[in-house]
Every structure is written in C-alpha cells, then in structure tokens.
C-alpha cells in the first residue's frame, strides 16, 4: 500500500514537517513583495514608540523622578522605555501571528494555494514566523533609535536589545501561531487581548517588581517579564548569570510554539 510507506509519518519526537523544510525563504520573499508597497505603514511604526516615549519624558518622568533598580537610581523614562520596547516586540509578533495568519489560513486561502506548489507546510510555518521576526527586528531598531533620540539610552550595550527583542518576538509569534491554529472564528480572537493585556501591565513594565510585594512570584510566570528583564539589563549595561535563565524561558517557549504550530498547520491544510 503506497499510503503507509511514508517514513516521516512514524517519527514522534520531531514533527515530520521539520524534515521537510526546503525553502521557507520564499514565504519571506512574498511578504517583502507585499511590504514594499506599504512601506509607509512600516515607517509610521517608528512614530508610535516615539510618541509614547515622548509623552513619558514630558509628563510622567517629571512626576515620578528616579526609580530604584538593583540598588541603583534610574530616571523613570530610562526605566520604563525598555519595558515598552519588550512589550511592543510582543504585541507586534502576536498581531502578525494571530489575526494575520488566521486571515491567510481561513479567508484568503493563501496557504492552500502555496501548498499546491512544491512548498511544504513546514516551509509556510517557518517562513511566516521568520517574517514576523524580521519585521519585529525592524520595529525594535526603530524603537531603539527613538530611545536614543530622546536621550534614554544609558549604555552602548543597548544594541543587544534588538536581538533580545527578536527572541521575544520569535517566542510570542510561535506561541501565537500555535494558538491560532486552534481558533474557529474571529470571535475567538477576543481572548487574545485577554492574555496579552495582563502580560503587558503586570510584567514589571511600568514599575519595579518589588512593588508587587507578596505577588512578585506571580510576575515570574509572565513570559514577557523575562524579556523585560533582559532588555532593561541591556540598557543599563549590567549583565549577570541570572539573565541566562530568563533567556532560556523564552527559547523554550519558541521551540514548543514552533513545533506545535507546524504540526497543526499540516493537519489543518492537508486533509
């Protein structure tokens, strides 16, 4: 029987699609083709962090004064900017990997068309995650430049904030895409902000984790918190071994998400 002779169908630990990734770059090529025409939207993406940071600098920073981080006093705007940078990496990746992917999956049937060519489900999943990450890197660079323009950068190590945000983006894009494959209709997306908003607000984004008091342990559960800690460290230029643990959390999420996503996409499209 020809049907049962597929060797890849018997692998369990590594999903079959992982063996079948040849040209994910073609999906990225497509996204670049689309983005070329809407470069204005990309450009305007620079202004959003700029407005936020400017508003904080003008108003809140003066009201708050300095904040204590690890025994050191940091001006409030320099404290909060890395938090917002990490959060925007998360939000961008989540949008790209949920609403955007769902639209292509269910409405425009883009992936159905792609899969009639020699492209595989693995190519599609990895290609789309890669594009989300690439776009995230652009936005994060814009964010970093906005911080620099407003004098919120403390250490040259800040350049590392871009790869850190790429990692944050990768993790959330992978998880978001995996969740999207379980969504049945647009109404299910109401639950997305129900997850991302608490993450945004309770990840030590706006004030030090010490302010949570007895609840501080709960913040550890937020994946974004681990990202915020890393970006903040890069802005202060202060590195410690504990940061490795924070990075590992994000990497694990990325791997789990990507695995589930490519497996599910194959199941959904190849029926």
């Amino acid at each position: 029987m020809s049907v049962t002779l597929n060797p890849a169908a018997h692998t369990r630990i590594v999903p079959a699609v992982v063996f079948d990734i040849k040209r994910p770059q073609r999906m990225v090529e497509r996204s670049i083709m689309v983005a070329r025409r809407s470069w204005m939207v990309l450009l305007s993406g620079f202004f959003e962090p700029f407005f936020y940071l400017l508003s904080i600098r003008i108003g809140l920073s003066a009201l708050v004064g300095d904040v204590e981080v690890g025994g050191e006093l940091v001006p409030y705007d320099q404290f909060v900017a890395p938090g917002l940078m990490a959060a925007s990496a998360m939000n961008g990746a989540v949008f790209d990997s949920t609403m955007n992917v769902f639209f292509k999956l269910k409405h425009s049937k883009l992936y159905d068309a792609v899969l009639t060519t020699p492209m595989s489900a693995g190519d599609v999943a990895l290609g789309e995650i890669a594009w989300a990450v690439l776009r995230g890197a652009l936005y994060s660079t814009a964010f970093m430049l906005a911080m620099w323009a407003l004098g919120m950068v403390q250490s040259p190590w800040i350049v590392l904030s871009v790869p850190i945000c790429v990692l944050i983006g990768f993790s959330f894009a992978a998880i978001g895409m995996a969740l999207t494959t379980f969504m049945r209709s647009w109404e299910d997306f109401e639950y997305v902000p129900a997850i991302t908003l608490p993450l945004f607000l309770f990840s030590a984004t706006f004030y030090p984790v010490s302010q949570y008091g007895d609840w501080a342990w709960l913040v550890q559960l937020s994946p974004l918190y681990h990202g915020v800690v890393l970006v903040r460290a890069s802005n202060l230029g202060e590195w410690s071994p504990a940061l490795i643990g924070h990075a590992v959390v994000l990497v694990v999420l990325a791997v789990v998400g990507a695995t589930v996503a490519s497996r599910r996409i194959e199941r959904l499209l190849l029926t």
């Binding site: 009201l63 708050v64 004064g65 904040v67 607000l201 706006f206 004030y207 302010q211």
Partner: peptide
C-alpha cells in the same frame, strides 16, 4: 480591561508618583 489598567498602571505608577518630587505641585 479598565480594572486591569487601574491595578496595573493606576496603583503601581500612582504609588511612584505620589512619592515623587512633583506630586504635590502638579
């Protein structure tokens, strides 16, 4: 949603501002 914003931003940042140097002035 507003409850979360109040707990997340209002209370936390509020504490920072109220201890801050300019609160009484502004």
């Amino acid at each position: 949603q507003p409850l979360m914003f109040l707990l997340g931003v209002g209370l936390g940042v509020g504490e920072l501002v109220d201890q801050g140097p300019e609160a009484a002035n502004v």
